[in-house]
Design a protein around this nucleic acid. Sequence first.
DNA 1: TTGACTAATTATACCTATACAATTATAATG
DNA 2: CATTATAATTGTATAGGTATAATTAGTCAA
Lengths: 234, 234
Amino acid sequence: MLKYQQVANQIELYIEQHQLQQGTKLPVLESLMDEFSASKSTIIKALDLLEKKGLIFQVRGSGIFVRRKSRMGYINLLSNQGFKKDLEEFDITSEMLQLDVVKPTQEVADNLQIDYDQGVYYVKRIRYINGQTLCVEESYYDKSVVTYLNKQIVTESIFHYVTEGLGLNIGFSEMYIKTGKLTEEEANYLHLKQGDPKLVMESIFFLSNGKPFDFSKVTYNYEQSQFFLLGSGI
Amino acid sequence: MLKYQQVANQIELYIEQHQLQQGTKLPVLESLMDEFSASKSTIIKALDLLEKKGLIFQVRGSGIFVRRKSRMGYINLLSNQGFKKDLEEFDITSEMLQLDVVKPTQEVADNLQIDYDQGVYYVKRIRYINGQTLCVEESYYDKSVVTYLNKQIVTESIFHYVTEGLGLNIGFSEMYIKTGKLTEEEANYLHLKQGDPKLVMESIFFLSNGKPFDFSKVTYNYEQSQFFLLGSGI
DNA sequence: TTGACTAATTATACCTATACAATTATAATG
DNA sequence: CATTATAATTGTATAGGTATAATTAGTCAA
């Protein structure tokens, strides 16, 4: 692993293990340089990473301070961020409803930037959070990128398989969020009533070379879904 | 303005004015160094900023490429990001319903990290997007930070006043999002029916020294509100 | 004694320069 | 056509100097 990532991880671990509170001042730059035997630039890069994650904030002339969000029980919209513990806070499981290779609709082809005759994997899942129905998810994967899927992979973590199993690098994402009323079918899956509120999140995930490989439409149970988002550098 | 911000702005302007499409390759690092008479580190910092904003993506060994989100008509959740044009895409106006100095409730005091006896500005506004009711907003400002507000400031832009008028630096934010059903009062404001879906966003804004100064609760009209979010570095 | 201004110190932010590593694209080769 | 070498291009790490903001301590005056 890269040095600045190691440094960032160790600082993150230190904050977490010592349960440092919001506003706690961390050692000054020079101390960190000594402690990790790294140059100023490397430490700064590590700190920038932590700042981007929302774990610290830096005040010129003053110091480096711990930042902790004030509420628990919310799901991170950019789940790469934050303490790993936040992810373990929830027990999320999946049930597979369908797994097929299909021809894409126009919507899917557009979002994945492929032709209509190229095959895509279609995956339909229900996800549970702490035993309660969280959401219904329909995902489409470009078959020329994600060449193989099976029930086990889909039930566990597709992203883990894509990165570890296939050795692909996920680069960035687009997310579109809107609210509306549940259809009858959606209401059945979520054990709610037709017309009840829903939150719909459509996401497109791209490889680090810019190729979109996953288009997902997720409908959330409005009673179970709360999200948070940490901004920095406004 | 800082050099790397200037560089970033000029690159952003170039992309926008030439309407460069997704995937267009930008000049290589060395060309940019020459063009802007800056060091490699400065250019990289500018590019990192643009990448964080979701405007470009970099592929090692290949180049720097333009990234453009594929859909229009969505509001940026992290509105600092993206082309300025995206913001001008909407005509957002405000109507002030109430402006008072009040004692904070426990909820407000907690979120602003102040005592119960400290005064806060309470602002209630309705915001319109392209003439349609977008949301009802209740905001609380720490009076020891935002020392003065009036109707004009509230009707225009409070954030512009805080940064330009008061010379304060906004540092970062926390946002919490959930969905639910409209109350009767909310429904009246939004010209919807009681029980219809709503999206509630609670935000806390912090100065760059870490002090929270604004706590806002915004209830959105589900028919008018669509949001997007660009992730990078997953 | 209090308050206001000033100066020194501390600490991070910014900019430059350089060397080498890692990845991708391209050309050469068999 | 596949393999391999080469070039092109960005990424990482280090070092050091300058700039700017925040804090602290000190000085002076009312």
